[in-house]
Structures are given as structure tokens and as C-alpha cells.
Design a protein around this nucleic acid. Structure first.
Lengths: 331, 331
DNA sequence: ATGAAAGCGCTAACAA
DNA sequence: TTGTTAGCGCTTTCAT
């Protein structure tokens, strides 16, 4: 717990000025090579490391890329792995930040504001709650907010995925198919809703509004909606949830209600987070390439930071049906 | 890309001094409540957010906890989820940092030095390369370095896990069992090595040094070691790898060599990262509770930051054998 | 109750 | 080639 040496300590120990140390450490011109050697020796001896914070207050660039997430949950963790992979060979450090735990609307604006302009040279924001973030650094959004996207975005084909999921249930013979929606402010959630409706429409089935619940990706909300849906006499024989976490909560609620999965109720999710395949029974879902999402966002950001004009600033990656053990024909 | 408002902007717009704004925003005493209201209104209007960096340079505490990782790979991602979970209801923000991508020895000392004293109030370092980190903030190590642990640590029972893994192979009837070791500077790696040797010893089998390779948890090193081991005429019929990433690389190498898993070669890993169960064939492994590791580390750190003296500062969590499809009796 | 001023550790003109 | 100086945005005495 001893005090970290500062540039002043180094300067004193080396018998030179603070600015000389700064120059030596940062390899600026105009320092005698012997002086550099001497300073660096002192630096090594004292174990000096420049404070990222202090440096970033003065210099415009820090060599750090920030990933802003509402929370470190399975989805964002996968994204993070992808970003890490893409940045592995770059010179950038990676800083992931979860502020105020995404409880408040506009968490990303707040986080971005606190970090940008100084700490990070560019940012990737995951499932943001606002469209507009005025910043001084390039920003890429993953799974963006609804509304006009002035930000470069990377997302998965949610509409197509929802279509596949709902059709899968239809193909199995289900006709009463429920839907638990996600965060209504996310473009992806809306697309999943639309995909669900389209698939039903294509099959000539009218959407029963009592079979559509709002889950907002929050377990408590999902629970309420699922309970309400499953306790009614004409309950659905299958439910499509807008993400895996919601789907897993539905499975849990069904279990508490004494419903057998998939005999009494089929459930399908969206995302294919690692937890999906490990749950019992293994969750049927629609896979979105989360790590690739992260990697592509990183590549896009890097390109933006180099001042380039990337050919495409709105990427949509394909999704794929992954049927597992929670979907089966109705009784 | 417009400039973020600073405290000076707010002060000007509100017609008060910078210090008054600071006091108002931070709820300090000595400001008329009408002034506070007025200032806060301007703050809201301008969308001002204090710069984390600038604040942290002046105040000793920031309300941010840092997790330092070499890299955002599956293992550390799981840890991160656990830490996030444990901190969900705390008032702390979470900042995960991967600097210099763990390539250089002592990355965590460097990162810690750059962040601590200013940006973060406490840190969790994952698989550090050094024992000693002199800092101004409390630090907890997960999967710590070998050597006298002056740091509070949280780790899994690597020795017991390795014992289970090797015995599993023994029980299946294997007698020529190889081992690909991990990072030799990690206490856990050494314990896994020891567990392997103990299990063989207990079974009355001498350790064949040609059946022990060093992988250092790096894919290229693992590949070399695996190739060397598997190309010899008296190749092992089973290999225990010190972590899953290594094990998966071995499976890959075996495939290239035309060896069938698990018929020609059994492979078992360690960790049970999400990828293990998703690989084909599904990897047999020893599960360590990574998320719990992270959560416990967070709890320990929180307690330390409150100035408490926790009852135990060295936690060891249990591991569990998870046999899957890559282990079978020898031909 | 308010504001002026110092300074956190560092970088970048500018002077010497 | 080196050192001096002026801030970066903020918090915190200390005057007013």
C-alpha cells in the first residue's frame, strides 16, 4: 500500500526536470540519448508507470478503447470476447465499463461522457438506451436503439431470426404461440416482435394479444407476463421469448406451474448465450453471432478512428435456428 | 462529436463560480438551496456529467472497482460475470481493463499502477504474473501467482480437480496418461501438475517425463507439445490438459493426426468454460466455479474496502469432474 | 453563502 | 539539449 512514484519522483531521483522525464518516457525528440538511458534506468528502478488518468488529461489520445455495457451479463460478456479478439493484435488497450448498472435511462450517455474526451479514444456501446450521444470520439453501437441511426451500428438479423423461431414452432404443429417481448426501445426487440407477427400471419394465424407479453429482458417482468399467460385456461402450447434469459425464466415458471417442457409447453429463446445450451433441458434458441458482433464493431471502430470512411456503417449479421430440447410438437 | 460541457460551462451558464457548481453537484454544505436548484437545472439542461478522470485526480475515491485481466478470453469473461453479479446491488461501477494484452510479464502491475491511486478504489486481478503489487488500494487476486501470497486470494481446488481428472482416466483403464501443463508461474498450474503426479503415484504408475509437456496455456506451445507427444510410437492413450483451451487444441491436433477422439485418445481439460460443452465432441473437464470465484473476490474486496478484516483472506472453492464425450476406455 | 486560488500528475509550447 | 510555465477539469481550503 505504498505510494506510487510519480513523474516528479523520477525527475528528482534522476536529477532532471519533469518535462525531460516526460520526453524521455514518451520518446520525444530533443533529449540526449544518455539522458534517456539514465532516466529510463531510474524509471525501471522506481517502478514508475505513468498515470493513465493524468496523461489522458493532457494528451488527446490514450490508446484505449472503451466498451460500454449496461451490465456484465452473458450477452455483453460474449461481445466483450469478440472485441478482445479483434483488438488482440492492435496496439489498443481495452477498457470495459458498466456504470450505474444500466438502471437509469441514458446510462451510456453518462458513462460515455465521463470517460470520453479523455480516457478513451473510441467507444463501442452495447444495447444503448438513447439514440444520440454527442461525443468527441468515434462511437459504434451494437444492438442499437430504435430511431434514426446516426451512429454506425452492428446488429444481428433479428427479424429473420424471429421468423425462423416462430416457423419452427409452427412446423412442429403449434398454433397457439405466445411471445414475450424484449426492451421496446431496442431496434432488435421490435424486429423480433415483427418477425413473430409475420410468421403467424404467413401461417394464417391471427395474433392473440393476450398471448403477447412484455418482458423487457427483465426477469421479474418476464415472470409476471409468463405467469399471466400460462395460468389462463387457453394457455399457449409454445412461447417464443425475445432473448435467452427471458426464455430460461419462462422455463422456470412453467416448472413451478407443474408444466413439463417440452411436452406441455415448448419454449424457444434468442441469442444462444452459453447458458442456453447448459440449462436443463437445453434451450432451443436462435443463435446470433455475438462474438462476431463484437469483433465487427471493433473493426468498424478502428477504421473510423483511423479517419477512414468505411464502405458500410450499418452491419447486419445472420442468425441461425438452433433447435434443442425445449421445443417439440404439442400434445 | 461536439464538445462535452465542462464544469466551467455550467458555471458560466448559471452565473456562479466553478466551486459553487462543484459543491452543488456533490451536495456539499454551504450552498443556498435555491442556488443548488438553479445549478442543477443548468446541469440538466446542458447535459453536464462530471469527468471521471478529472474528478478522480482530485478526490481520493471514485466509486469504481477495477478488474484487471490479461485478456478478455472465456475464463476471465466468466469471472467478470460473477463480479458483475456481486456488484449489481452495490453502489460501485465496474471497470474491466486489459492492458498490453497480457503479453508482457507484469502487465497487472503496469495496469494497476496506471489506474490505481486515482481511477479505482479497489482492484481484482486475474491470473497475475507477479506476487507483489504495491498499491494504494485494496487488491484481491483470483487464481494467484505462486509464491508467498501477501495478497488476499480466491482460487479453485486445482489439486483436487487434477486428482479427479487423472483418476477418471485411470478408472477408465488408461495407464499411459500424458499431461500438458499450464503457466508454470501460477499456483493453480503447479497444483494441477501435482495432482496429476499424485494420482499416478497412487495408482502405482511412474511418471514418464516424455509424457509431460509444457503448454503455458498458449495455443502454439500446446500444439508443439501435443504433436511431439502424439507422434511418438508409444504415445499416450489419454491426455490431461491444465485448462480447456489447451485441451481443445489437443483435440484439434489429434484430429489432424487422424486420431479419433475418444477411441484413439481420451482428452480431459480443466475449467469448464462455456466453449468446452459446445465443442465437438463435448469436452470432458473439471469444472471450477468461475462466476463464484469472481463473486467471492468481489465480496472479499468490498469487505476490505470497508476497512474490515475478513475472517478468511484465502478462499479455495471446490472443483467437480464433468465427464463428457472426449474420455472413454482405451482401445 | 460564495468565489478565488492552489494543485492533483502529466504534456506541450516556449525559453534558455 | 534542457528547463520553465501554463494549463487539462475538477475538488478543496481559505478568504470574502
Amino acid at each position: 500500500m505504498k505510494r506510487r512514484p510519480t513523474i516528479t519522483d523520477v525527475a528528482e531521483a534522476a536529477g532532471v526536470s519533469v518535462s525531460t522525464v516526460s520526453k524521455a518516457v514518451n520518446g520525444r525528440y530533443g533529449v540526449a540519448s544518455e539522458t534517456v538511458d539514465h532516466v529510463l534506468a531510474v524509471v525501471a528502478e522506481l517502478g514508475y508507470e505513468s498515470s493513465l488518468i493524468a496523461s489522458s488529461m493532457r494528451s488527446r489520445t490514450t490508446g484505449v478503447i472503451g466498451v460500454l455495457v449496461a451490465d456484465f451479463e452473458p450477452f455483453s460478456a460474449e461481445i466483450l470476447k469478440g472485441v478482445g479478439q479483434a483488438l488482440r493484435d492492435s496496439a489498443y488497450d481495452l477498457l470495459a465499463y458498466s456504470g450505474t448498472h444500466g438502471t437509469a435511462e441514458g446510462w451510456e450517455r453518462r458513462s460515455l461522457s465521463r470517460l470520453s474526451g479523455t480516457l478513451i479514444d473510441g467507444a463501442i456501446i452495447v444495447t444503448p438506451t438513447v439514440v444520440n450521444v454527442g461525443t468527441e470520439v468515434p462511437v459504434v453501437a451494437i444492438d442499437p436503439h430504435t430511431g434514426p441511426a446516426d451512429l454506425p451500428t452492428v446488429e444481428a438479423d433479428s427479424f429473420g431470426g424471429a421468423l425462423q423461431a416462430t416457423r419452427h414452432l409452427l412446423d412442429l404443429g403449434h398454433t397457439r404461440i405466445g411471445f414475450i417481448a424484449g426492451r421496446p426501445d431496442l431496434r432488435s426487440s421490435i424486429a423480433r416482435d415483427a418477425g413473430y407477427r409475420r410468421a403467424l400471419g404467413d401461417a394464417g394465424i391471427a395474433v392473440d394479444p393476450r398471448l403477447v407479453g412484455s418482458g423487457s429482458y427483465r426477469q421479474d417482468a418476464v415472470r409476471v407476463a409468463a405467469l399471466e399467460m400460462l395460468e389462463r385456461p387457453d394457455r399457449p402450447t409454445a412461447i417464443f421469448a425475445a432473448n435467452d434469459i427471458s426464455a430460461m425464466e419462462i422455463v422456470k415458471v412453467a416448472g413451478e406451474l407443474g408444466l413439463d417442457i417440452p411436452t406441455d409447453l415448448s419454449v424457444i429463446g434468442f441469442d444462444d448465450v452459453p447458458e442456453a445450451s447448459k440449462s436443463t433441458p437445453a434451450l432451443s434458441t436462435v443463435r446470433q453471432p455475438m462474438q462476431t458482433l463484437g469483433a465487427e464493431a471493433a473493426r468498424l471502430l478502428l477504421s473510423l478512428m483511423r479517419g477512414e470512411t468505411p464502405p458500410a456503417t450499418h452491419l447486419t449479421l445472420p442468425t441461425r435456428l438452433v433447435p434443442r430440447a425445449t421445443t417439440a410438437p404439442p400434445k
